[in-house]
């Protein structure tokens, strides 16, 4: 069981986490905007997450916490 949480209001929607994810289970939200006006990154399938933390490794604004 792995868990990825986003400090969503600090996400600038750069997509580097989406690109880094080996399981391709992250995406920039198409519908939602965060308080800064960015489409934030979100988890699409938490079940498949392997807690590799690639996403957090590439996140420039350090908004991702990974637990397992």
């Amino acid at each position: 069981m792995a868990k990825v949480t986003f400090r969503e209001d600090w996400c600038k929607g750069c997509g580097l986490c989406v690109e880094a994810c080996p399981k391709k289970i992250l995406a920039l939200s198409e519908k939602r905007l965060n308080s800064a006006g960015f489409h934030p990154a979100e988890m699409t399938d938490q079940e498949k997450c392997i807690a590799c933390a690639f996403c957090a490794t590439m996140c420039p604004h350090v908004v991702i916490t990974v637990e397992k």
């Binding site: 933390a53 490794t57 916490t65 990974v66 637990e67």
Partner: peptide, 11 residues
């Protein structure tokens, strides 16, 4: 659950 990755304290 254990933390795999979190914001460093020095940041």
């Amino acid at each position: 659950m254990s933390t795999v990755f979190e914001r460093p304290k020095a940041l």
